[in-house]
């Protein structure tokens, strides 16, 4: 019965749960989903996926992760690994439905609203991300939410590396204006490993 036997796994570390899941223990994997499902769904929403679509992709990402659990070496966190799977699945879906091109080609818009007047946006990442152009939001979420490098993001988005760097830079500037102190400083992405 789904949902039974949670207590047995609740005290285990993610790495231990992964080891159990690798032997086919689906309840152990269920505990991992319980722990990190919200983070993965949240990332997909921040990338621009709508509620039901985000949940669909998140489900597929976890199912893919279960099938490939033996590939998870524990170098990074389990959540980070699944987030990267989910981000790539979402981008693949966008590509398949021919939505990715339109999204990344959409011109950046300037938010007319003064960010300093919006107190909530200062502490609300989601609100701040909504002020970004879709391409900027996607690039920032990929690099800072899913942990992809600039070059990995460029490859996943099928965009030139320089374009991705520009999107990230502009996105960071806008986010900093909304979220951070010392507005106005030009930000340089430190993920220029591509």
């Amino acid at each position: 019965m789904p949902g039974s036997g949670h207590a047995r796994y609740a005290s285990l570390h993610d790495v231990e749960l992964c080891a159990h899941a690798a032997t086919g223990e689906r309840r152990a994997f269920g505990e991992l989903v319980r722990r990190h499902g919200s983070a993965v769904r949240g990332l997909l929403r921040r990338m621009g996926a709508q509620g039901a679509e985000a949940d669909d992709v998140a489900q597929d990402a976890f199912l893919t992760a279960f099938e490939r659990i033996a590939e998870f070496r524990g170098d990074g966190t389990f959540a980070g690994w699944v987030k990267r799977i989910a981000a790539r699945l979402y981008l693949r879906r966008l590509q398949k439905e021919r939505r990715l091109g339109a999204l990344t080609a959409e011109p950046a818009f300037e938010d007319a609203e003064d960010p300093h007047d919006d107190a909530e946006a200062r502490i609300d990442l989601d609100g701040a991300l909504n002020a970004l152009a879709p391409a900027e939001k996607l690039c920032v979420a990929l690099c800072f939410g899913a942990g992809l490098s600039h070059s990995d993001a460029a490859e996943a988005l099928n965009l030139p590396l320089g374009t991705v760097k520009s999107h990230v830079k502009r996105g960071l500037e806008k986010l900093r204006a909304r979220l951070g102190p010392g507005n106005g400083a030009v930000l340089e992405g430190r993920r220029g490993n591509g």
Binding site: G3, R27, G30, V33, R34, G37, S38, A58, G145
Partner: peptide, 22 residues
């Protein structure tokens, strides 16, 4: 901020859906 994602109200139901599919 990206990592600090709040817990969804239906987090358990979501996990159970995946367990059922597995």
């Amino acid at each position: 901020l990206f990592a600090e994602s709040g817990e969804y109200g239906d987090a358990n139901a979501f996990a159970e859906r995946i367990e059922r599919r597995l």
